[in-house]
Amino acid sequence: MSTPVLTAVCAMALPDQGAPPEWVHLIPMGRVRGVDGRGPYVLRDTAHAARVIAASGTGVDLPIDYDHDAILPNGRRPIAAGWIKALDARPDGIWGRVEWTTAAAAHLSAREYRYLSPVFDHDTGGAILKLRMAGLTNIPNLAVLTALAAQEAPLTTTPTADPPPLTAVCAALGLPDTTSPDQIAAVAAQARQGAATLTTVARALGLPDTAPPDQIVTTAQARGAPPDPGQYVPMSQFSALSADLAAMRGRLDADAAERLVAQAQAQGKVTPAMREWAMGYAAKDQQGFTAWASAAPVLVPPGAVAPPGPAPGGVSVPDATLTAVCAQLGLDPTKAARAATDKGE
């Protein structure tokens, strides 16, 4: 995320003296506004001033022109009034060592120019980033710089004690004042992601979205407490109990299947030959078998099917199906039943 860079033009009053001084006050320390209301512009401390100087020092002397001819579209050819040879970070701001031209020194001695106007880049929060140049002008804007003459009292500065916006953001995020805007944005994004994660965890634990981290940690630790041995049984006992329950369920299912099949036999819908199939079906799916029995046709007259097993005397009683088959074959149903009993069928 790039930070917009803006350029500001300010000015300070020059002293009434015979020759301009070698060192000039270019940018004041603190937070100030221009006379025209622009700003505020911020130079936080000497460390900030040192960074501005480092950004401004390109190995080429910074120019001082007349009336900002070098940057304003006024049609005049820019001519140098002097050159800033060095910059220095001081407790009251940034100072520059200037070599004035002969013509500029004459203009200043004649009071034809009375103000020096620095031109600098700053971010959207007003923090100064880089000194570009300066210009002699008679239209002042920034009236809080120290006068050039050492014998004159400095102009009154009124920097506010309030921290600039980025300083307040850095303090809120626990970052040093020297943190760049891109680094601040990255840390803020991480903070937002962390807050979203905490909200998700709080919801998973049944806590409100606004639950503080301490409450979230306490609840999570309680959920993850080691199990109480008194609330559990050994696996062997659990397995044995599961087996007993399965056997009991099997017996209940078998009894239920027996009742359903017996009822279907009494209704004439299941013959003895169908019993084994019917028992398997009913044991596996009682509801399915019940539905089938309800829709199945009557195969033999209801009550005609005798209970399975031998009759008294060891002779099986022929059922209705056997009787019908024997009638088609011209056989005696009783003899056929006795023959089946003798063969163990």
Score class of each variant (00 low, 15 high):
residue 279 M to R: 09
residue 201 V to P: 04
residue 190 Q to E: 09
residue 218 T to A: 07
residue 154 P to S: 15
residue 205 L to W: 00
residue 235 M to T: 15
residue 188 A to R: 03
residue 253 D to I: 01
residue 281 Y to M: 12
residue 220 A to Y: 02
residue 229 P to N: 09
residue 211 A to Y: 06
residue 201 V to D: 02
residue 274 M to T: 13
residue 263 Q to C: 01
residue 266 A to K: 15
residue 168 A to I: 08
residue 177 D to C: 01
residue 283 A to Q: 10
residue 190 Q to Y: 09
residue 222 A to I: 08
residue 185 A to I: 02
residue 189 A to G: 10
residue 165 P to W: 01
residue 166 L to D: 14
residue 197 T to I: 13
residue 164 P to Y: 05
residue 244 D to W: 00
residue 238 F to M: 06
residue 202 A to S: 11
residue 177 D to A: 08
residue 164 P to M: 01
residue 258 E to I: 01
residue 207 L to S: 00
residue 154 P to T: 15
residue 180 S to K: 09
residue 235 M to R: 13
residue 223 R to K: 04
residue 239 S to L: 14
residue 185 A to W: 03
residue 224 G to Q: 07
residue 175 L to D: 13
residue 280 G to C: 01
residue 250 G to M: 08
residue 279 M to N: 05
residue 239 S to Q: 15
residue 207 L to P: 01
residue 265 Q to N: 03
residue 166 L to E: 13
residue 201 V to K: 02
residue 259 R to N: 05
residue 158 T to D: 15
residue 256 A to I: 02
residue 270 V to T: 08
residue 223 R to H: 03
residue 231 Q to H: 08
residue 270 V to I: 12
residue 279 M to S: 06
residue 198 L to H: 00
residue 164 P to I: 01
residue 221 Q to F: 13
residue 196 A to E: 13
residue 265 Q to P: 06
residue 222 A to D: 09
residue 238 F to V: 06
residue 155 L to I: 02
residue 263 Q to A: 09
residue 232 Y to H: 08
residue 179 T to S: 14
residue 216 I to R: 04
residue 233 V to N: 12
residue 230 G to W: 04
residue 153 A to R: 10
